[in-house]
């Protein structure tokens, strides 16, 4: 009996300890999310009534498809590029070349400094009067490149901001790799490229995957980068903000409907991504 009571008391204590976390979750995430969902089902500007009009309007608008496609194009291509950048980079850093500490720190910079600072710097650097165009026009004597406010430019900026997730996770996986496995492969007759292709890459694939998921998540939800550097290209996040900021009165219901669509897309895509890519390693 006393044992039962003690166990009871222990579970109550656990519950009490968990409660701040869940209170925070419920109050600061779940409740706002619900408010957003409810708002999205209200007619614009009214506090009563239920309607699907906002969703119908959003999903049938001609621009919507472009917005969604843009959001995915930006997120997916920057994720793929982050892998392309991270794999050679981490393979080099793993060898601890001269100055590798400096480069490790460099990898951290984009996720430590405020996104805005990076965005601003990139705009200036790649701008029509920036160093890149200076190099192109004065050294190469080629016509100016338009990078700012274009989709490839945005992808480049996304890459700058979000590749560290892929790189750091890949690096951690790579450094956890047992060197003797690679030595075994080379003794068995595999040259460097074959060791990489048959042994190292398959073994770090889970790490690359885990990192690229993070990069994808960050890129999909990215707000401040496209807000400052997007120009006329507005991915979902910026389009939502526009509903509140650029319309008077603010279109809360429309914005909310778009938010809900975004959350659903994110969760759906993530679960597909995880399921599809996790299978080969099961």
């Amino acid at each position: 009996m006393s044992d039962f009571l003690r166990r009871q008391r222990q579970s109550i204590l656990t519950l009490l300890m968990l409660s701040p976390g869940f209170a925070g979750f419920l109050g600061l995430f779940f409740y706002p999310m619900m408010v957003t969902v409810v708002r999205s089902l209200r007619p614009e500007g009214q506090e009563v009534g239920w309607t699907l009009a906002n969703y119908i309007e959003f999903l049938s608008k001609p621009g919507t498809r472009q917005v969604i496609v843009l959001t995915f194009v930006l997120a997916i291509s920057s994720t793929l590029l982050s892998i392309v950048l991270s794999v050679p980079l981490t393979l080099i850093l793993r060898e601890k070349p001269w100055g590798h500490r400096f480069f490790r720190l460099t990898v951290l910079i984009p996720i430590t400094v405020p996104g805005l600072v990076g965005a601003l710097g990139l705009l200036v650097f790649y701008g029509s009067r920036g160093w890149l165009n200076l190099f192109v026009t004065q050294v190469l004597h080629l016509p100016k490149l338009n990078i700012n406010y274009t989709v490839p430019g945005l992808i480049l900026f996304y890459l700058w901001h979000y590749f560290p997730y892929t790189a750091l996770t890949t690096l951690a996986t790579l450094e956890g790799l047992d060197r003797s496995i690679e030595e075994a492969a080379s003794v068995a007759g595999a040259n460097d490229w074959q060791v990489l292709r048959h042994v190292v890459l398959p073994l770090i694939a889970p790490g690359i995957l885990a990192g690229s998921v993070l990069t994808f998540m960050a890129a999909f939800g990215s707000f401040s980068i496209p807000l400052v550097t997007g120009g006329n290209y507005r991915p979902l996040s910026v389009a939502i903000y526009t509903q509140i900021e650029s319309f008077t009165p603010a279109r809360w219901s429309m914005g909310s409907a778009m938010s809900v669509v975004m959350a659903i897309l994110q969760v759906t895509f993530l679960s597909i991504y995880m399921r599809v890519l996790r299978r080969p390693m099961a």
Partner: peptide
Amino acid sequence: SVILLPRMIPPIAYALGVARI
């Protein structure tokens, strides 16, 4: 994973709700 949900969903998706509350 429930607790971590706010980090999986882009903040903008619930920011409007936060603002209204």
